[in-house]
């Protein structure tokens, strides 16, 4: 290199040696914790104290996903049901929507047209979702759907409605 470029080289390095470490430290210091959806809209958010009767619990309902599933009732026999999903490992999907669908829910990429959107699930956050009224009268499934990837991630069939509406603890 010629002398003017050696000088320019030294100046560039001196500037980078100051600016880049500062930017690096500032960038790392400003990191937020992993964003997780802790709140779901009030309209579909069941108030936890209302659902005190555990009527179903299982750990292996979701195939490869390690999610504990619990169904709670508000009274016995139930007038309303809520399903609690508790991922035991971090769910690496953004915008995970939770649907309840009557019947076996099929295997199509998107949830059936008549499925009910009951909330969102994120990271390892425990979510309690109010099941729609038909869940007391018909068998149904819970579906996890990734909005970002536009595909169904997993489906779990809930116990039959007769068990759930009977409110017999398992």
């Amino acid at each position: 290199m010629i002398r003017p470029l050696r000088r320019r080289h030294r100046r560039i390095i001196s500037v980078l040696a100051v600016l880049l470490p500062l930017a690096f430290i500032a960038g790392i210091a400003s990191r937020k914790s992993i964003p997780a959806m802790a709140e779901i809209p009030p309209a579909i958010r069941p108030a936890a104290p209302e659902f005190t009767h555990l009527i179903f619990e299982q750990n292996d309902l979701w195939g490869q996903f390690d999610i504990t599933t619990r169904v709670y009732a508000d009274t016995l026999p139930p007038s309303r049901l809520a399903v609690e999903l508790h991922p035991q490992r971090y769910l690496e999907y953004p915008d995970l929507l939770v649907y309840w669908s009557a019947g076996a829910a099929g295997a199509a990429k998107i949830p059936p047209q008549e499925a009910f959107l009951i909330g969102v699930l994120s990271g390892r956050e425990k979510g309690l979702f109010l099941l729609p009224a038909p869940a007391l009268e018909t068998d149904g499934s819970v579906i996890l759907y990734s909005l970002a990837q536009q595909q169904r991630i997993a489906t779990a069939a809930l116990p039959s409605h007769s068990i759930l509406s009977g409110g017999n603890p398992r």
Binding site: L20, A23, F24, G27, I28, S30, R31
Partner: peptide
């Protein structure tokens, strides 16, 4: 470096 610090590392 800024792209990585302000992107992936966030």
């Amino acid at each position: 470096v800024l792209h990585v610090v302000l992107g992936a590392l966030q």
